[in-house]
Design a protein around this nucleic acid. Structure first.
Lengths: 329, 329
DNA sequence: CTGAAAGCGCTTACAG
DNA sequence: CTGAAAGCGCTTACAG
């Protein structure tokens, strides 16, 4: 059996109360007693049971993180940053990969409640999930969920603008946008609106193709093919995701398009990974680290009761200019 | 205050014992009582407290997962698979990104003990971590840790052989290997041994360059530069990691090497992500899904006490043949 | 400076 | 078929 406080107390010749006190460094204890207790703990290899502690304190220092999948570079990077921030502040991360399935998200949400997490950081595009009795502090990333849930986003409209203008600036005439599932309420919708606005302002007609699932690249190739068949004269493509952009670029090359001479391409997300292995790809860089930082800080503030107001924070994105949008004068 | 079992009991007009019984579906309860209890739970929006449950049952259904970082595609994919497997079997994942720092790993390990996780899946290259009193079931991935910890690996020697032979097969004469930190006991060491064996068997002299940190790509460029300066006649490179391979490929191109005509390159890991966005890169594909599956199953078997023996499982890898090792006859 | 007692929210023998 | 009591391992008023 694992030793408990009582066992330590016996070995040290003191009461459990005293052991608990030295453990928590609370109240005044003679240094002799402290030493005895520490010695006893080493001797029997005592490890405190945080379950019991949490039960009493009603505080687990556990944060639930719900994302579609750590497999996608953006979420891998985001989760990495969130975990780091949490760890720095003494919180632990319960990871939930929802695969964007509403049913799974619902189950995870319930599981997190049962496990008494102190708060949740969630990336979801399904609004209906959160029941009105939602009890714990939560921060949603990139998507409004309900009036008592904070939102931390990057500026998706700005990103859409930056990307679209970049293509115009380098001389594209026929600019097409590729986005994800048209039925999903993702932040990529904002990117599309921005694209449409920029096109209108420039007197061009916007045209958007939607792939069924950004994450499952295989399922997207048909849409990409269709795009080129229907628009052989396309000379600029703004994809709402870097993986999609790369896939499109590959297909274009296989059709004989020269990049950037015949066709310019820009993606979205700009994770460190993609920028490192595909530096030539122009893209909009999301401030992943700041998103994570803001989300974790906002959450902990609410947990600690430091701040009452529900916050909405929007962070700026930036342009990574690679060869795929190099002006081909 | 959150409602507890006692509150449900009052509303339903039964004892807490009975509520607990319907909650756990244990013992015989009249269906009338059941209904009353369920109705009461809905009415006051009751959610069981798994902390209290776990405290009593000495079972948390929590699994700690320690990896260097979800930011690396291989670990992102691995964690994704592990989390999926765990979720399917009713376990939850406590995520720990150690960044390969021994100190952090140690802290995480202690934290997991305090949190009473049922078991741990760990990717670490530091052997000294695990104290002899290590209590809970654990599975190490790709690296032997101690006699009471299972190991699930892919066959790194086989992978090294496959990669090296592939380069020989397509006609390379001067084959150089790039590996990670020479001081780390990573599975990539096996890949290097295999490379050296294949070279010797072919009557060639092996030559390995070590980069300081596979994960931080920026820090590796100096070594890559050095490699080409010192061996301008290199015509085959086996990198122990796809990201490293891609970086090397980029640098080679910038120096004017044509791939694969002048120089052939093969990487390692072959994650779905890399294969999808860099299909031209030849690589050794690790069976990530099976690794995760085996690790989770082995761990749960030990947790359940179904199996006593400590297992060592080695899974086969396979070759993904892309253009970067196309024979240039 | 230290201890006995009650309680965190649950579950399970033990009675009935 | 149902309930009162004790206990999971910890912590904190309340006494002394």
């Amino acid at each position: 059996m694992k030793p408990k406080i009582e066992d330590v107390a016996k070995v040290a010749g003191v009461s459990p109360t005293t052991v608990s006190r030295v453990l928590n460094d609370r109240g005044y204890i003679s240094s002799k007693t402290k030493e005895k207790v520490f010695a006893a703990m080493k001797e029997i290899n005592y490890v405190p049971n945080d379950l019991a502690r949490s039960l009493y304190n009603k505080r687990t220092y556990l944060i639930g993180v719900i994302v579609p999948s750590t497999n996608h570079p953006f979420f891998g990077e985001l989760v990495d940053s969130i975990e780091k921030m949490c760890n720095d502040r003494g919180y632990k991360v319960l990871l939930c990969n929802s695969l964007q399935e509403a049913e799974k998200e619902k189950k995870y949400w319930d599981m997190l409640r049962r496990n008494q997490v102190d708060g949740v950081i969630v990336v979801t595009y399904n609004r209906g999930l959160i029941d009105k009795n939602q009890q714990f502090p939560a921060v949603a990333i990139d998507h409004y969920l309900s009036e008592n849930i904070h939102v931390v986003s990057s500026d998706n409209f700005q990103g859409g603008e930056l990307a679209s203008k970049e293509l115009l600036d380098v001389g594209c005439k026929n600019i097409i946008h590729i986005n994800g599932d048209v039925n999903l309420e993702t932040p990529a919708n904002e990117r599309q609106y921005a694209y449409e606005k920029v096109m209108h302002d420039a007197g061009r007609k916007p045209l958007t193709y939607h792939v069924p699932n950004v994450a499952y690249l295989e399922s997207n190739i048909d849409v990409i093919k269709q795009l080129f068949q229907e628009n052989p004269d396309v000379d600029g493509i703004f994809a709402s995701d870097d993986l999609l952009a790369i896939r499109t670029l590959q297909h274009a090359k296989s059709l004989g398009y020269r990049i950037p001479e015949d066709l310019k391409i820009i993606g979205y997300d700009g994770t460190g990974l993609i920028r490192s292995i595909y530096p030539e790809l122009s893209t909009i860089v999301q401030p992943t680290y700041q998103i994570a930082e803001n989300a974790v800080e906002t959450l902990i503030e609410e947990i600690d009761g430091t701040s009452q107001e529900i916050k909405e924070k929007t962070l700026s994105v930036s342009l990574w200019k690679g060869k795929t949008t190099r002006a081909s004068s």
